[in-house]
């Protein structure tokens, strides 16, 4: 083989001009070279892959999927917690509302009771005042009637005297009283 390919560039596969004779793929002289370097390259790639690259990338991918799984679990956890908190909040709101309603009702009842008592007291007071006033009015009226009678008697006496008659006080009084009644 060596002797054949030795004479310059031209050999069994290449013509004198440096062009291929037939298919270079089928040139048996070149095959051992390709096969040798292919095997070297494949072994190198295999060692590079199996020793360094693949374990490294595998570890990174595993770590990433682990991280993602953890994160998703944590997110799920937080979501549950949030839901719980929301439920608790709703419950608290509900409790507070019913409590407030209770308090409002109690306050209303209390106020109502106080109001009733006050109203009763006020009514009683008003009734007492009314009775007092009525008594006063009655007294005033009685006073007024008496005054009117007195004034009438005096006026009658004076009129009788002015007309020149002497009037007996008793008769005049009786007459005025009778008129007043009439």
């Amino acid at each position: 083989m060596a002797t054949e390919t030795h004479d310059a560039v031209a050999g069994t596969c290449v013509d004198a001009g440096g062009s291929a004779l037939g298919m270079p793929q089928l040139c048996a002289d070149w095959m051992p070279n390709q096969i040798f370097w292919l095997v070297i390259t494949l072994i190198a790639i295999y060692l590079l892959m199996s020793r360094i690259a693949l374990p490294r990338i595998g570890a990174v991918l595993a770590e990433r999927s682990g991280t993602i799984t953890n994160d998703i679990a944590a997110a799920e956890d937080l979501k549950n917690k949030a839901a719980e908190a929301e439920a608790a909040y709703d419950q608290a709101l509900l409790d507070a509302r019913s409590e407030a309603q209770k308090i409002v009702a109690a306050a209303k009842a209390e106020i109502q009771a106080e109001l009733d008592v006050e109203l009763q007291k006020a009514d009683a007071q008003i009734a007492a005042k009314t009775a007092e006033s009525e008594a006063a009015i009655a007294e005033i009226r009685a006073g007024a009637i008496k005054s009117v009678t007195d004034v009438a008697k005096d006026t009658a006496k004076e009129l009788v005297a002015a007309m020149g008659g002497t009037a007996d006080a008793k008769t005049i009084t009786a007459a005025v009283t009778a008129r007043m009644k009439g």
Binding site: M1, A2, T5, H6, A8, V9, G11, C13, V14, G18, S19, A20, M23, P24, Q25, C27, D29, W30, P32, N33, Q34, I35, F36, W37, L38
Partner: peptide, 26 residues
């Protein structure tokens, strides 16, 4: 010369292509 691109040449010099010669394939 569509097939000339597939010719195996030694990288250094114009010698014969032995099985161990560094070539353009290498």
């Amino acid at each position: 010369h569509p097939l000339d691109q597939f010719i195996v040449k030694p990288l250094f010099g114009d010698g014969p292509v032995h099985w161990y010669t560094p070539t353009n394939v290498t």
